[in-house]
Design a protein around this nucleic acid. Structure first.
Length: 350
DNA sequence: AAGACGGGGGG
DNA sequence: CCCCCAGTCTT
Protein backbone atom coordinates (compact mmCIF):
# COMPACT_ATOMS: atom_id res chain seq x y z
CA UNK A 1 0.00 0.00 0.00
CA UNK A 2 2.89 2.39 0.64
CA UNK A 3 3.89 4.49 -2.33
CA UNK A 4 6.97 3.94 -4.46
CA UNK A 5 9.33 6.89 -3.95
CA UNK A 6 9.50 8.58 -7.35
CA UNK A 7 12.84 10.13 -6.42
CA UNK A 8 14.32 6.65 -6.06
CA UNK A 9 12.84 5.55 -9.40
CA UNK A 10 12.60 8.64 -11.57
CA UNK A 11 12.70 6.59 -14.77
CA UNK A 12 9.61 4.62 -13.79
CA UNK A 13 7.81 7.80 -12.81
CA UNK A 14 8.70 9.54 -16.08
CA UNK A 15 7.63 6.54 -18.17
CA UNK A 16 4.28 6.25 -16.44
CA UNK A 17 3.62 9.95 -16.89
CA UNK A 18 4.80 10.16 -20.50
CA UNK A 19 2.85 7.13 -21.68
CA UNK A 20 -0.27 8.68 -20.14
CA UNK A 21 0.53 11.93 -21.94
CA UNK A 22 0.99 10.08 -25.22
CA UNK A 23 -2.62 8.94 -24.98
CA UNK A 24 -4.30 11.81 -23.15
CA UNK A 25 -2.48 15.03 -24.00
CA UNK A 26 -4.83 17.98 -24.24
CA UNK A 27 -5.03 19.38 -27.76
CA UNK A 28 -4.08 23.06 -27.51
CA UNK A 29 -3.47 25.53 -30.32
CA UNK A 30 0.16 26.18 -29.37
CA UNK A 31 1.10 22.53 -29.02
CA UNK A 32 2.59 19.91 -31.27
CA UNK A 33 1.35 16.36 -30.59
CA UNK A 34 3.31 14.29 -28.03
CA UNK A 35 6.42 12.58 -29.35
CA UNK A 36 6.27 14.72 -32.47
CA UNK A 37 9.39 14.97 -34.61
CA UNK A 38 8.81 18.64 -35.23
CA UNK A 39 9.53 21.06 -32.45
CA UNK A 40 7.03 23.68 -31.41
CA UNK A 41 7.57 27.19 -32.78
CA UNK A 42 9.40 29.22 -30.07
CA UNK A 43 7.26 32.25 -30.87
CA UNK A 44 4.04 30.38 -30.26
CA UNK A 45 5.40 28.70 -27.14
CA UNK A 46 6.56 32.04 -25.75
CA UNK A 47 3.29 33.80 -26.56
CA UNK A 48 1.20 31.03 -25.02
CA UNK A 49 3.33 30.77 -21.88
CA UNK A 50 3.20 34.51 -21.26
CA UNK A 51 -0.57 34.46 -21.72
CA UNK A 52 -0.82 31.50 -19.35
CA UNK A 53 0.96 33.32 -16.52
CA UNK A 54 -1.73 33.67 -13.83
CA UNK A 55 -4.37 32.74 -16.36
CA UNK A 56 -6.38 29.60 -17.09
CA UNK A 57 -6.04 27.83 -20.44
CA UNK A 58 -9.62 28.49 -21.46
CA UNK A 59 -9.23 32.25 -21.07
CA UNK A 60 -5.98 32.34 -23.03
CA UNK A 61 -7.07 30.36 -26.11
CA UNK A 62 -9.12 33.04 -27.92
CA UNK A 63 -6.39 35.62 -27.30
CA UNK A 64 -3.74 33.25 -28.61
CA UNK A 65 -5.78 32.59 -31.77
CA UNK A 66 -6.33 36.30 -32.36
CA UNK A 67 -2.68 37.20 -31.80
CA UNK A 68 -1.23 34.50 -34.03
CA UNK A 69 -3.77 35.19 -36.77
CA UNK A 70 -2.88 38.86 -36.76
CA UNK A 71 0.83 38.55 -35.99
CA UNK A 72 2.11 35.16 -37.23
CA UNK A 73 5.75 35.81 -36.34
CA UNK A 74 7.66 37.59 -33.63
CA UNK A 75 8.87 40.06 -36.27
CA UNK A 76 5.26 40.92 -37.14
CA UNK A 77 4.49 41.47 -33.48
CA UNK A 78 7.62 43.54 -32.95
CA UNK A 79 6.60 45.83 -35.79
CA UNK A 80 3.08 46.48 -34.48
CA UNK A 81 2.18 49.71 -32.67
CA UNK A 82 2.02 49.47 -28.86
CA UNK A 83 -1.64 50.52 -28.80
CA UNK A 84 -2.67 47.71 -31.16
CA UNK A 85 -1.00 45.10 -28.98
CA UNK A 86 -2.36 46.52 -25.74
CA UNK A 87 -5.85 46.67 -27.25
CA UNK A 88 -5.58 43.05 -28.36
CA UNK A 89 -4.53 42.12 -24.82
CA UNK A 90 -7.40 44.05 -23.21
CA UNK A 91 -9.47 41.81 -20.95
CA UNK A 92 -6.69 39.33 -20.29
CA UNK A 93 -5.38 41.17 -17.25
CA UNK A 94 -1.98 41.78 -15.67
CA UNK A 95 -1.13 44.37 -18.28
CA UNK A 96 2.53 44.50 -17.33
CA UNK A 97 2.68 41.21 -19.22
CA UNK A 98 1.61 42.97 -22.40
CA UNK A 99 4.10 45.78 -21.90
CA UNK A 100 6.86 43.21 -21.37
CA UNK A 101 5.60 41.23 -24.35
CA UNK A 102 6.12 44.23 -26.59
CA UNK A 103 9.62 44.87 -25.22
CA UNK A 104 10.50 41.19 -25.51
CA UNK A 105 9.26 40.88 -29.09
CA UNK A 106 11.39 43.84 -30.17
CA UNK A 107 14.47 42.51 -28.39
CA UNK A 108 14.03 39.08 -29.96
CA UNK A 109 13.42 40.50 -33.43
CA UNK A 110 16.57 42.57 -33.01
CA UNK A 111 18.52 39.47 -31.90
CA UNK A 112 17.27 37.55 -34.93
CA UNK A 113 15.45 34.93 -32.88
CA UNK A 114 14.82 33.55 -29.43
CA UNK A 115 17.77 32.46 -27.28
CA UNK A 116 17.77 28.65 -27.07
CA UNK A 117 18.89 28.27 -23.47
CA UNK A 118 17.11 28.79 -20.18
CA UNK A 119 19.67 31.41 -19.09
CA UNK A 120 19.38 33.32 -22.35
CA UNK A 121 15.60 33.32 -22.18
CA UNK A 122 15.60 34.38 -18.52
CA UNK A 123 17.26 37.67 -19.48
CA UNK A 124 14.31 38.72 -21.66
CA UNK A 125 11.59 41.07 -20.37
CA UNK A 126 8.70 39.26 -18.71
CA UNK A 127 10.41 35.88 -18.59
CA UNK A 128 10.95 34.63 -15.05
CA UNK A 129 11.99 31.20 -13.79
CA UNK A 130 8.82 29.47 -14.92
CA UNK A 131 8.49 30.86 -18.43
CA UNK A 132 12.17 30.63 -19.33
CA UNK A 133 12.28 26.99 -18.21
CA UNK A 134 9.09 26.10 -20.05
CA UNK A 135 10.21 27.63 -23.35
CA UNK A 136 13.67 26.04 -23.03
CA UNK A 137 12.06 22.63 -22.50
CA UNK A 138 9.14 22.82 -24.92
CA UNK A 139 10.65 24.75 -27.82
CA UNK A 140 14.31 23.75 -27.52
CA UNK A 141 14.30 20.32 -25.86
CA UNK A 142 16.40 21.49 -22.92
CA UNK A 143 16.07 19.48 -19.70
CA UNK A 144 15.00 22.53 -17.67
CA UNK A 145 13.06 22.14 -14.45
CA UNK A 146 9.64 23.69 -15.00
CA UNK A 147 7.71 24.66 -11.88
CA UNK A 148 4.31 26.30 -12.05
CA UNK A 149 1.37 26.16 -9.69
CA UNK A 150 0.16 22.87 -11.14
CA UNK A 151 3.56 21.26 -10.69
CA UNK A 152 3.92 22.60 -7.14
CA UNK A 153 0.61 20.97 -6.32
CA UNK A 154 1.62 17.65 -7.87
CA UNK A 155 4.96 17.64 -6.00
CA UNK A 156 3.34 18.57 -2.68
CA UNK A 157 1.02 15.60 -3.00
CA UNK A 158 3.55 13.12 -4.37
CA UNK A 159 5.84 13.76 -1.41
CA UNK A 160 3.28 14.84 1.22
CA UNK A 161 4.87 18.22 1.76
CA UNK A 162 2.96 19.70 4.72
CA UNK A 163 4.89 22.97 4.87
CA UNK A 164 2.60 25.78 3.65
CA UNK A 165 3.39 27.83 0.57
CA UNK A 166 5.35 29.92 -0.09
CA UNK A 167 7.83 28.46 2.43
CA UNK A 168 7.61 25.06 0.71
CA UNK A 169 8.75 26.39 -2.66
CA UNK A 170 12.43 25.38 -2.37
CA UNK A 171 11.51 21.82 -1.38
CA UNK A 172 8.95 21.53 -4.19
CA UNK A 173 11.44 22.80 -6.73
CA UNK A 174 14.10 20.38 -5.51
CA UNK A 175 11.65 17.50 -5.89
CA UNK A 176 10.68 18.62 -9.39
CA UNK A 177 14.36 18.93 -10.29
CA UNK A 178 15.10 15.34 -9.26
CA UNK A 179 12.30 14.04 -11.48
CA UNK A 180 13.08 16.03 -14.62
CA UNK A 181 14.23 13.74 -17.46
CA UNK A 182 16.97 14.36 -20.02
CA UNK A 183 14.76 12.87 -22.76
CA UNK A 184 11.54 14.49 -23.94
CA UNK A 185 11.73 17.29 -21.35
CA UNK A 186 9.13 19.36 -23.22
CA UNK A 187 6.57 16.58 -23.33
CA UNK A 188 7.37 15.79 -19.71
CA UNK A 189 6.75 19.37 -18.57
CA UNK A 190 3.48 19.54 -20.48
CA UNK A 191 2.48 16.13 -19.14
CA UNK A 192 2.98 17.35 -15.57
CA UNK A 193 0.94 20.46 -16.29
CA UNK A 194 -1.84 18.41 -17.87
CA UNK A 195 -1.79 16.06 -14.92
CA UNK A 196 -2.22 19.01 -12.56
CA UNK A 197 -5.01 20.50 -14.64
CA UNK A 198 -6.98 17.35 -15.42
CA UNK A 199 -6.23 14.74 -12.72
CA UNK A 200 -4.39 16.28 -9.80
CA UNK A 201 -6.81 19.18 -9.60
CA UNK A 202 -6.90 21.62 -6.67
CA UNK A 203 -10.20 20.25 -5.46
CA UNK A 204 -11.52 16.71 -5.98
CA UNK A 205 -8.47 15.12 -7.64
CA UNK A 206 -9.34 11.97 -9.59
CA UNK A 207 -6.75 9.63 -8.11
CA UNK A 208 -8.54 6.59 -9.58
CA UNK A 209 -7.43 7.59 -13.07
CA UNK A 210 -4.03 8.97 -12.09
CA UNK A 211 -1.13 7.42 -14.01
CA UNK A 212 1.32 8.06 -11.18
CA UNK A 213 -0.90 7.17 -8.21
CA UNK A 214 1.52 4.37 -7.29
CA UNK A 215 4.13 7.02 -6.55
CA UNK A 216 1.87 9.33 -4.55
CA UNK A 217 2.24 9.56 -0.78
CA UNK A 218 -0.88 11.68 -0.44
CA UNK A 219 -3.13 9.18 -2.15
CA UNK A 220 -5.70 8.13 0.44
CA UNK A 221 -4.40 10.88 2.74
CA UNK A 222 -6.74 13.68 1.67
CA UNK A 223 -4.60 14.97 -1.20
CA UNK A 224 -7.05 17.84 -1.80
CA UNK A 225 -5.75 19.63 1.32
CA UNK A 226 -2.28 19.94 -0.28
CA UNK A 227 -0.44 22.12 -0.91
CA UNK A 228 -1.18 24.05 2.28
CA UNK A 229 -1.18 27.80 1.95
CA UNK A 230 -0.70 30.80 4.17
CA UNK A 231 -4.08 32.39 4.91
CA UNK A 232 -4.72 35.33 2.67
CA UNK A 233 -5.71 38.73 3.92
CA UNK A 234 -9.05 40.34 3.18
CA UNK A 235 -9.22 42.80 0.30
CA UNK A 236 -9.94 46.39 1.32
CA UNK A 237 -12.57 48.37 -0.56
CA UNK A 238 -11.40 51.40 -2.50
CA UNK A 239 -13.42 54.07 -4.25
CA UNK A 240 -13.06 55.86 -7.55
CA UNK A 241 -14.83 58.13 -10.01
CA UNK A 242 -14.99 57.60 -13.75
CA UNK A 243 -15.94 60.43 -16.09
CA UNK A 244 -18.39 59.85 -18.93
CA UNK A 245 -17.65 62.80 -21.20
CA UNK A 246 -19.91 62.78 -24.24
CA UNK A 247 -19.71 65.11 -27.18
CA UNK A 248 -21.83 64.71 -30.32
CA UNK A 249 -22.23 60.96 -29.97
CA UNK A 250 -18.61 60.42 -29.03
CA UNK A 251 -16.99 59.47 -25.75
CA UNK A 252 -13.67 60.71 -24.40
CA UNK A 253 -11.18 57.87 -24.05
CA UNK A 254 -7.78 58.49 -22.48
CA UNK A 255 -4.55 56.53 -22.17
CA UNK A 256 -3.50 55.64 -18.60
CA UNK A 257 0.06 56.33 -17.42
CA UNK A 258 2.49 53.67 -18.63
CA UNK A 259 3.11 52.06 -15.23
CA UNK A 260 0.92 50.99 -12.35
CA UNK A 261 -2.63 49.71 -12.32
CA UNK A 262 -3.95 49.13 -15.88
CA UNK A 263 -0.80 50.90 -17.03
CA UNK A 264 -0.72 51.99 -20.65
CA UNK A 265 -4.30 50.93 -21.27
CA UNK A 266 -7.14 52.86 -22.89
CA UNK A 267 -9.59 54.02 -20.23
CA UNK A 268 -12.34 56.35 -19.16
CA UNK A 269 -10.88 59.36 -17.40
CA UNK A 270 -10.81 58.47 -13.72
CA UNK A 271 -9.76 59.63 -10.28
CA UNK A 272 -7.23 57.80 -8.18
CA UNK A 273 -8.66 54.78 -6.42
CA UNK A 274 -8.62 55.70 -2.75
CA UNK A 275 -9.75 54.46 0.65
CA UNK A 276 -12.50 57.07 0.89
CA UNK A 277 -14.67 58.33 -1.99
CA UNK A 278 -12.96 61.04 -4.06
CA UNK A 279 -14.48 64.48 -4.46
CA UNK A 280 -16.50 65.13 -7.58
CA UNK A 281 -14.03 66.53 -10.10
CA UNK A 282 -10.96 64.72 -8.78
CA UNK A 283 -9.19 63.35 -11.84
CA UNK A 284 -11.67 64.95 -14.25
CA UNK A 285 -10.41 65.42 -17.82
CA UNK A 286 -11.71 68.99 -17.93
CA UNK A 287 -13.73 71.39 -15.81
CA UNK A 288 -17.44 70.86 -16.27
CA UNK A 289 -20.70 70.40 -14.42
CA UNK A 290 -20.34 66.71 -13.59
CA UNK A 291 -23.58 64.95 -12.68
CA UNK A 292 -23.91 61.77 -10.71
CA UNK A 293 -25.51 59.02 -12.76
CA UNK A 294 -26.36 56.68 -9.91
CA UNK A 295 -24.42 53.99 -11.75
CA UNK A 296 -21.56 52.21 -10.02
CA UNK A 297 -19.30 49.36 -11.00
CA UNK A 298 -17.96 46.87 -8.49
CA UNK A 299 -14.77 45.26 -9.64
CA UNK A 300 -12.21 43.05 -7.94
CA UNK A 301 -8.51 43.53 -8.49
CA UNK A 302 -5.77 41.34 -7.08
CA UNK A 303 -5.40 43.21 -3.81
CA UNK A 304 -8.47 45.41 -3.44
CA UNK A 305 -12.10 45.76 -4.40
CA UNK A 306 -13.11 48.85 -6.28
CA UNK A 307 -16.39 50.70 -6.18
CA UNK A 308 -16.34 52.94 -9.22
CA UNK A 309 -18.98 55.63 -9.52
CA UNK A 310 -19.71 56.96 -12.98
CA UNK A 311 -20.41 60.65 -13.42
CA UNK A 312 -21.15 62.44 -16.66
CA UNK A 313 -21.26 65.73 -18.49
CA UNK A 314 -22.37 66.84 -21.91
CA UNK A 315 -19.87 68.92 -23.77
CA UNK A 316 -19.23 70.23 -27.24
CA UNK A 317 -15.47 69.83 -27.09
CA UNK A 318 -13.82 68.47 -30.21
CA UNK A 319 -10.41 67.92 -28.69
CA UNK A 320 -9.13 67.30 -25.22
CA UNK A 321 -6.80 65.09 -23.24
CA UNK A 322 -7.66 61.99 -25.24
CA UNK A 323 -9.53 60.59 -28.17
CA UNK A 324 -13.21 60.97 -28.96
CA UNK A 325 -14.59 57.56 -29.88
CA UNK A 326 -18.06 57.07 -31.40
CA UNK A 327 -20.38 55.32 -28.95
CA UNK A 328 -20.96 52.46 -31.36
CA UNK A 329 -17.24 51.82 -31.75
CA UNK A 330 -16.28 51.50 -28.10
CA UNK A 331 -15.75 47.74 -28.43
CA UNK A 332 -12.72 48.50 -30.57
CA UNK A 333 -11.22 50.92 -28.08
CA UNK A 334 -9.26 48.22 -26.24
CA UNK A 335 -10.73 48.93 -22.83
CA UNK A 336 -9.83 46.61 -19.96
CA UNK A 337 -12.69 44.86 -18.22
CA UNK A 338 -13.30 47.51 -15.54
CA UNK A 339 -14.09 50.17 -18.13
CA UNK A 340 -15.82 47.74 -20.43
CA UNK A 341 -18.25 47.12 -17.58
CA UNK A 342 -18.75 50.86 -17.17
CA UNK A 343 -19.50 51.30 -20.87
CA UNK A 344 -21.91 48.40 -20.89
CA UNK A 345 -23.81 49.78 -17.92
CA UNK A 346 -24.04 53.27 -19.38
CA UNK A 347 -25.13 52.16 -22.84
CA UNK A 348 -27.73 49.79 -21.39
CA UNK A 349 -29.28 52.73 -19.55
CA UNK A 350 -29.98 54.67 -22.72
C1' DA B 1 10.69 39.32 1.87
C1' DA B 2 6.62 41.58 0.73
C1' DG B 3 3.61 44.00 -2.16
C1' DA B 4 1.65 45.26 -6.78
C1' DC B 5 -0.64 43.51 -10.47
C1' DG B 6 -6.73 41.18 -13.41
C1' DG B 7 -10.02 38.38 -14.43
C1' DG B 8 -12.91 34.33 -14.63
C1' DG B 9 -15.12 30.17 -12.86
C1' DG B 10 -17.24 27.34 -9.17
C1' DG B 11 -19.86 26.39 -4.93
C1' DC C 1 -21.99 36.24 -2.24
C1' DC C 2 -17.28 34.57 -1.04
C1' DC C 3 -14.00 31.22 -2.58
C1' DC C 4 -10.20 29.72 -5.49
C1' DC C 5 -6.46 30.08 -8.85
C1' DA C 6 -1.20 31.94 -9.68
C1' DG C 7 4.25 34.29 -12.43
C1' DT C 8 7.08 38.51 -12.70
C1' DC C 9 8.73 42.81 -11.36
C1' DT C 10 9.49 46.33 -8.00
C1' DT C 11 10.56 48.06 -3.65
Amino acid sequence: MSATDARAAPGAFQSALLSWYDRHARVLPWRVPPGSEERADPYRVWLSEVMLQQTVVKAAIPYFEAFTMRWPTVENLAAAPDEDILAAWAGLGYYARARNLIACARTVAEMGGFPDTEEGLRALPGLGPYTSASIAAIAFGRPATVVDGNIERVMARLFMVETPLPAAKPDLRAAADLLTPRERPGDYAQALMDLGAVICRPKAPTCLTCPVADFCEARGNAPERLPRKQPKQAKPVRHGLAYWAESRGKLLIVRRPPKGLLGGMAALPASDFTDSPPRLGDGAPFTAKWHRTGRTIDHVFTHFRLRLEIVKAKTSLANGPGEWVPLDRLEEAGLPTLFRKAVKTMLAAR
